[in-house]
Design a protein around this nucleic acid. Structure first.
Length: 571
RNA sequence: AGCCCGAUAGUAUAAGGGUAGUACAACAGAUUUUGGUUCUGUUUGUGGAGGUUCGAAUCCUUCUCGGGCUACCA
């Protein structure tokens, strides 16, 4: 037993599954072959929890020179649909993964049927006429042993005959089931003669009406792994008690010994991960669809502006273990900010509040010649000088945000206030001389003077100001719709709350506002050269697919970190 | 209740009998034409009790706590 010295301090430690794989390779198991699979049921859209599993399965194969199959677990025809098959494949590609084989559990229906006959012939499976309720009673509860079905000792020949008649469609739904004869007294409920085939006269998305009996998940999943010679079958913790059953089938059938390993599923703060709950949100109209930017689905994150690399980075950082966890959504946000900071162009956009007639704050530069116009050259990304510069028109009237002016500023406020100075980003330093209000006392306009010598890039004014704010030339501003998204739920862990999850929704998870943006942004988004951008000082935004040329829509991916907001909270 | 899985800073995740480390978060400061970025520093941890050992987060016992299982769903 010699230990490979871990002499590189930058080397990442292995998670427990990687340890297992490395041990298996070292032991020569399956000749060092690593073959994983990602096995979604096509009955819903992929979410960030699936992304964890995807990154694990594909990442493992990639790391150890193996392969990964995509296999749709489609054993329940009434809940599954090709719509979901397509969306799953699309999301997988988008995340950046390609699969070795595209398989379906339904590809194995005939083989699985034969497996079932084999078990019958071996005397370890039987046709049971009991109703679902009767079977539940027979199983009993974990504290005491179950009781055998009256049909448990049916002769092999009769079982075979009955099972063939089930396949032939001679019985209505629910009339009979095939059960594995394992152990009605097992403390593991999964082993108390589980149902392995049921009658469902239903149309299947792939096999059509070929079958009226369908294998249960437990009779399809492990054997599918085995058929595909999957070496490491990874799934979440709740399937731990099923593993002895899979091993039992493999042993009775004498087929390839795939081994299952279980890890804990991902939970994220302020959202839900259950497919059923997500489906409810969609069906009840709490969100606009599976791809609503508030949803933790891959489609939702994509529309929200998350990138594949940021999601993969997140999955890498959260790790893989067996303890229950609740990951701070802030980590996901960190990952996307980290990438977008590096890659996106900066654009100035002045946002208003949610009122439909909301106006930005107009700033008139009284000593700037009427009708004069300058083009400011502003760098696109201070993190990437290769990103170049863009032209930004400047004039006598500009829009700024109401938040950037306070008549009676608190301490440490270094934006604009009466008599105060700020720099207009990429342009001049200005001084606020006068506040204009309407009859209701609402501030409608700021009258300012600019310092001609302070032009950005050739500043000889000698002035230094504490604040720089963003702006848009009133004469050139283009109106856009901006959707500000916030967390979907108002509590950290909706799944653990005794209240119904629908009562915990954040009523302010979406705020739609008018915005006035640089003309350059509209040109760029029309040409498709920009998708993700940073609105300076506001956050990262992405063009929404529902945009039209004359009605651009931007979704906020995530805000920038906001030290001022934090300062204000301190009071 | 029976069986199974788990427990390391606020949240995650390492340390495989020998210095409890990393990331995010938080806090403080520096830099900054984004209150962004970047940089520096700081705070915070082995669930309890026994045992084995020169030495225990790690091995053993036990308790406590959290989670899972009792679908003709997956």
């Amino acid at each position: 037993m010699t230990e490979v010295p871990n002499n590189s301090s930058t080397e990442k430690s292995l998670n427990f599954i990687e340890q297992i794989v490395e041990d298996d390779i070292a032991a020569g198991l399956h000749a060092g072959r690593v073959h994983t699979r990602f096995p979604p049921e096509p009955n819903g859209y992929l979410h960030i929890g699936h992304a964890k599993s995807i990154c694990l399965n594909f990442g493992l194969a990639d790391k150890y020179g193996g392969k990964t199959n995509l296999r749709f677990d489609d054993t329940n025809p009434v809940t599954e649909d090709t719509e979901y098959v397509d969306s799953i494949k699309n999301d997988l590609h988008w995340l950046g993964f390609g699969w070795e084989n595209e398989f379906y559990a339904s590809d194995y229906f005939e083989q699985l049927y034969q497996f079932a006959e084999t078990l019958i012939e071996k005397g370890v499976a039987y046709v049971d006429d009991s109703t679902a309720e009767e079977i539940a009673v027979q199983k009993g509860n974990p504290a005491e042993p179950g009781t055998p079905s009256p049909h448990r000792d049916r002769p092999v020949a009769e079982n075979l005959d009955q099972f063939r008649k089930m396949r032939a469609g001679e019985f209505p739904d629910g009339a009979k089931v095939l059960r594995a004869k394992v152990d009605m007294t097992s403390p593991n409920m999964q082993l108390r003669d589980p149902v392995i085939y049921r009658i469902k006269h239903a149309h299947h998305h792939r096999t059509g009406n070929d079958w009226c009996i369908y294998p249960m998940y437990d009779f399809a999943h492990g054997q599918s792994d085995s058929i595909e010679h999957i070496t490491h079958s990874l799934c979440t913790l709740e399937f731990i008690p099923h593993r002895p059953l899979y091993d039992w089938f493999i042993e009775k059938l004498n087929i390839f010994p795939s081994h299952q390993y279980e890890f804990s599923r991902l939970n994220l703060t302020y959202t839900v991960m259950s497919k059923r709950k997500l489906k409810t949100l969609v069906e009840d109209g709490h969100v606009t669809g599976w791809d609503d930017p508030r949803m933790p689905t891959i489609a939702g994150l994509r529309r929200r502006g998350y990138t594949p690399a940021s999601i993969r980075e997140f999955c890498d950082r959260i790790g893989v273990a067996k303890r229950d966890n609740l990951i701070d959504v802030g980590l996901l946000e960190f990952c996307v900010r980290e990438e977008l900071n590096r890659t996106t162009h900066r654009i100035m956009a002045v946002l208003t509040d949610g009122r439909p007639d909301a106006q930005p704050l107009k700033l008139v530069i009284t000593n700037y010649e009427e009708g004069r116009e300058e083009i400011m050259r502003i760098e696109n990304n201070p993190e990437d000088h290769e990103a170049g510069e863009r032209d930004v028109p400047f004039g006598r009237e500009v829009f700024i945000e109401h938040d950037d002016f306070i008549e009676n500023p608190p301490k440490k406020f270094f934006r604009l206030f009466p008599g105060g100075m700020v720099r207009l980003k990429g342009a001049y330093i200005i001084k606020c001389d006068e506040v204009v209000k309407d009859d209701a006392g609402t501030i409608t306009e700021l009258r300012c003077t600019y310092i001609p010598e302070s032009r950005s890039g050739s500043d000889t004014s000698g002035l230094t100001v504490k604040g720089t704010i963003h702006w848009v030339s009133a004469a050139h501003a283009v109106e856009a719709e901006v959707r500000l998204y916030d967390r979907l739920f108002q509590v950290e862990n909706p799944a653990a709350d005794e209240r119904g999850f629908k009562d915990l929704l954040n009523p302010n998870s979406l705020q739609t506002v008018r915005a006035f943006v640089e003309p350059a942004l509209i040109q760029a988004t029309r040409s498709g050269s920009l998708t993700n951008v940073q609105f300076m000082r506001k956050g990262y935004f992405v063009i929404d697919p529902a945009s039209t040329p004359d009605r651009p829509i931007f979704n906020r991916t995530v805000t920038l970190k906001d030290a001022w907001a934090k300062e204000q909270k301190k009071g």
